[in-house]
Nucleic acid binder design. Structure first.
Lengths: 168, 168
DNA sequence: CGAAGATCATAGGACGTCCAACTATCGGAT
DNA sequence: ATCCGATAGTTGGACGTCCTATGATCTTCG
């Protein structure tokens, strides 16, 4: 199907080249950034494959779960954006699709007419539950790493995120 | 500007909720997947900010570097796709834009009329050099992690990628 | 040698993300 | 009381990624 000539890790290759070309101090950082890009793609596609039959994407699944975990099953758009760390327009996009699919509903905020509240529907909760179950079973319970690597990864990325001003 | 109420790490929060809701075995995996998504976004936006003034994106930068590192400054489209682990259509897209910007050129393959060779231009090399220098200085030399964390991260993600069939 | 199968590249479409611009609405300062 | 800056959402556009389908070209094998 593909090539059999022992496919080396392209990122290790790049790191070697980086060092040889006189940028040894930047080689590890380059490798880290590149690894992150690839790993993200791989993991995302695994997740999307699981969600596809349910007609949701990971982005929309995250919105649903945020609503499921909220007290009243209701949140302002703005709150969704800050919690998920995505641009407001991405929230509008996700909510548009979720609403079209009948999984959430836009309702006016009682006191502030600028804000729109998003309310999860019965169908939305069902999709969220099914999706969670399948993701837990097929991906989260088996992310492709040992338990030890998994927690180390989470810790390191937490430091990276904090350092980037993500939360702390 | 935003809220001052000590913003906790949303991912730690989610992990806690996951455990409380009866999915303790999947909580670490969920946290890992989610962390990867966020970290990817953060790092990518840092990189794109550096490249924007040069009118290239990271995806196109990667194509340019692949060509820079190749013997003759020439590679078939298909080769670019497999090396960068992206879909063929993404390569077509990137090459279209690079060619429009005069950074690469499409030339016919001498013996196989199906394949198209991509050749980097003088201008392409200059952009690649400048971009590399700036990325090295501003991002790769300082990825937001200690050197130790950086190498650990690369190692863990390598295991993840191999496990997903990325190379090994 | 000729048909069937594999490979290469492109076109069109769906999605998510960001940015810039714009409209409403709120709220605080003068 | 009013004016002006901050905040909430939407719209339109640029990009990257994938998927499916399609047209050319090899390649392999009966």
């Amino acid at each position: 199907m593909t090539r059999r000539e022992l496919p080396l890790d392209p990122i290790r290759e790049a790191e070697r080249l980086w060092t040889e070309h006189g940028w040894p101090d930047s080689a590890p950082g380059m490798a880290a950034v590149t690894s992150l890009m690839r790993a993200h793609q791989l993991v995302l596609s695994r997740v999307e494959a699981v969600l596809r039959p349910l007609d949701v994407t990971f982005a929309r699944y995250e919105v649903l779960m945020l609503l499921v975990f909220s007290r009243r099953g209701t949140l302002p758009m703005s709150r969704i954006g800050t919690r998920l760390q995505v641009h407001q327009t991405s929230v509008t996009n996700a909510v548009d699709r979720l609403e079209r699919a009948g999984l959430v509903r836009r309702v006016p905020h009682p006191s502030d007419r600028r804000t729109t509240l998003i309310e999860i529907t019965r169908a939305g909760r069902e999709v969220a539950d099914t999706a969670t179950q399948r993701l837990n079973e097929t991906v989260f319970a088996n992310p492709g790493l040992t338990r030890r690597d998994t927690t180390t990864l989470v810790d390191i990325l937490a430091r990276l995120r904090r350092q980037a001003g993500d939360f702390g």
